[in-house]
Simulated assay, not measured.
Amino acid sequence: MTAHVRQGEAFAAARPPLHRHLAADAVSRRVAGWTAVGAVSSRCVHAGGAACPA
């Protein structure tokens, strides 16, 4: 379990905190999906954009 936590911390540290979203079922409250936006490029021409995985 410790390795999983470390990987999660590295994942979280590499992404902006305000761009993490969770989808949950309204009745069962079970997680249906999630997403976290990360930097895709250090080039200034891509500033303000987000990429979706294919």
Results as ranks from 00 to 15, higher is better:
17 P>K: 04
16 P>F: 08
19 H>A: 11
19 H>R: 14
28 S>V: 07
13 A>H: 04
32 A>D: 13
29 R>T: 11
23 A>N: 00
21 H>G: 08
36 A>W: 00
26 A>D: 14
11 F>I: 06
17 P>V: 02
28 S>D: 10
18 L>P: 00
19 H>F: 13
15 R>Q: 05
33 G>W: 03
12 A>C: 10
37 V>N: 01
24 A>W: 06
22 L>D: 02
19 H>P: 00
18 L>A: 11
36 A>T: 03
30 R>I: 07
26 A>Q: 09
34 W>R: 03
22 L>V: 12
26 A>S: 15
30 R>L: 15
11 F>P: 02
37 V>G: 03
38 G>R: 08
21 H>D: 06
35 T>Y: 03
27 V>W: 07
21 H>S: 08
32 A>F: 08
24 A>I: 11
39 A>P: 05
23 A>S: 06
27 V>G: 07
37 V>M: 06
19 H>M: 11
31 V>D: 13
24 A>V: 15
22 L>Y: 02
38 G>L: 06
37 V>W: 02
15 R>V: 04
37 V>I: 09
29 R>L: 14
27 V>Y: 10
34 W>Y: 14
26 A>M: 07
16 P>N: 13
26 A>L: 13
26 A>F: 08
22 L>K: 00
19 H>L: 15
37 V>R: 02
38 G>M: 06
